[in-house]
Every structure is written in structure tokens, then in C-alpha cells.
């Protein structure tokens, strides 16, 4: 078993500095109370956090408020981040999605959307954002998502953008739980394979 930053037994602050990733260095500084490090994290990920939150809450004003709350949650909870539970980006994304979904459930005006939207649309027509130049990468994601079978895409969208658990998706769509599980798994495996390939060609 290798040791170092990947080892489950090594607390982050004991990992030698040159073995840490930028993310790990940032979160360690944030946990130590360095607000500039939070600003740097914002520079790296603010656009993604804001975009995800906006997609879920569907209001620029609310997205601004919720995205700020996300970074404040990072500030307050940085000392609870554990490398061995997953990547910092994964952690940040789950805080962002949870905060936005929570906002939507409690304050969203479009409660009805959840009932009426075909989840598939939510992800299939991801805008290839305004600045098309930057967005060959985003286009790749959009195509990969569009290539999923519709029912697989819908299951993924309900989980990813609506925050539903697999059982909730089964209850909502009337599809057996086992089928929902295999669709979610298949969606993530296909995207991972396809987007991973692209990464290598990049």
C-alpha cells in the first residue's frame, strides 16, 4: 500500500507540502483562517459553483445569494473536509448542489417545475454557454449527455439537478428501483468513459 497524500491514515496537515495538490493547499489555508485562500478558491471555481446553482435555482439573484452561501459554508466547514472521502471538487459540488436544491425546495417559486419538467430537458439542453470559443469542452459534455438513452438521461437529471435519491426517482417515475439504479450507474459509466477519452485527446 502506498503512503502519502492518498493514504487514508494521513491527516492533511501532515502531508508534506510539495505532495499536496493546489486544492489541498487551498483548503488547508482556508481551514487555518486565511481569507485570501478562499478568494483564490473562488477564482478557480466560482464560475462553476455559480453556474450549477443558477441552473438549479433558476434566478440570477437567488443564485448570487446561494453561491455566496456555498463559499461561506466552505469557509466555516473547511476543517471538516476529509481527503479520504473524495476530492475537494466533489465536496464543493455537493455543497453547491445541496444548497441550491435546498433553496429550491424551501423558497423556489417554481415548485411545480419539479412535477412538470421532463428531467431530460434539464440536462440535454445545457446551454453551450454564451462564449462559444471556450466551450468546445462544454459542447463535448452536451453531446455526451445527449447521446444517452432518454430514460437514462432522465434518471441522471432527476438525481443530479433535482437532488432526488434513487428510491425517490423510482417512486416519482414508477420505474422499479433496480432499473433506476442500473440507469444511474450506466449514465455515469458512459459519461465517464466518453469524457475520459476526450480528456486524453485534449
Amino acid at each position: 500500500m502506498r503512503s502519502g497524500p492518498g493514504s487514508s491514515t494521513t491527516p492533511l496537515h501532515l502531508v508534506p507540502d510539495d505532495e499536496r495538490s493546489d486544492d489541498e493547499r487551498s483548503i488547508a489555508r482556508i481551514a487555518a483562517g486565511d481569507a485570501d485562500a478562499l478568494g483564490e478558491l473562488y477564482d478557480r471555481y466560482g464560475r462553476v459553483v455559480f453556474g450549477v446553482v443558477l441552473r438549479i435555482v433558476d434566478s440570477p439573484e437567488a443564485a448570487e445569494e446561494v453561491a455566496q452561501d456555498v463559499f461561506h459554508a466552505v469557509w466555516r466547514r473547511a476543517d471538516t473536509y476529509r481527503r479520504e472521502r473524495g476530492s475537494l471538487k466533489g465536496w464543493l459540488l455537493s455543497i453547491s448542489r445541496n444548497a441550491a436544491i435546498d433553496w429550491r425546495r424551501t423558497k423556489g417559486r417554481h415548485v411545480a417545475t419539479e412535477e412538470t419538467t421532463d428531467g431530460a430537458e434539464l440536462i440535454a439542453d445545457m446551454d453551450v454557454a454564451e462564449s462559444a470559443v471556450v466551450n468546445a469542452r462544454a459542447e463535448g459534455v452536451r453531446l455526451a449527455v445527449a447521446a444517452l438513452p432518454p430514460e437514462t438521461r432522465q434518471a441522471l437529471a432527476l438525481a443530479y439537478w433535482m437532488g432526488l435519491s434513487q428510491s425517490e426517482i423510482a417512486a416519482k417515475t414508477g420505474v422499479p428501483l433496480g432499473t433506476v439504479k442500473s440507469r444511474i450507474r450506466s449514465a455515469m459509466q458512459r459519461l465517464r468513459a466518453r469524457l475520459g477519452d476526450e480528456e486524453e485527446r485534449w
Binding site: Y42, G46, Q68, G90, D127, A129, V141, L195
Partner: peptide
């Protein structure tokens, strides 16, 4: 898988209002 989930997130990235960075740091 988290990396894949992040790629989905990146695809919807958007420009937040420019005042947001200062607000985040000030609040911290």
C-alpha cells in the same frame, strides 16, 4: 466519478456578478 460529475458542472459554468468575489472574502 466525481470528476465526471464535475465535468457536467463545468458545462453550465456561468459568469457571476463581479461584486461576488469581494462579498465572499469580506463575509469570511
Amino acid at each position: 466519478y466525481q470528476e465526471t460529475a464535475w465535468r457536467l458542472a463545468e458545462a453550465v459554468a456561468g459568469e457571476p456578478p463581479s461584486r461576488m468575489r469581494a462579498a465572499v472574502v469580506e463575509r469570511a
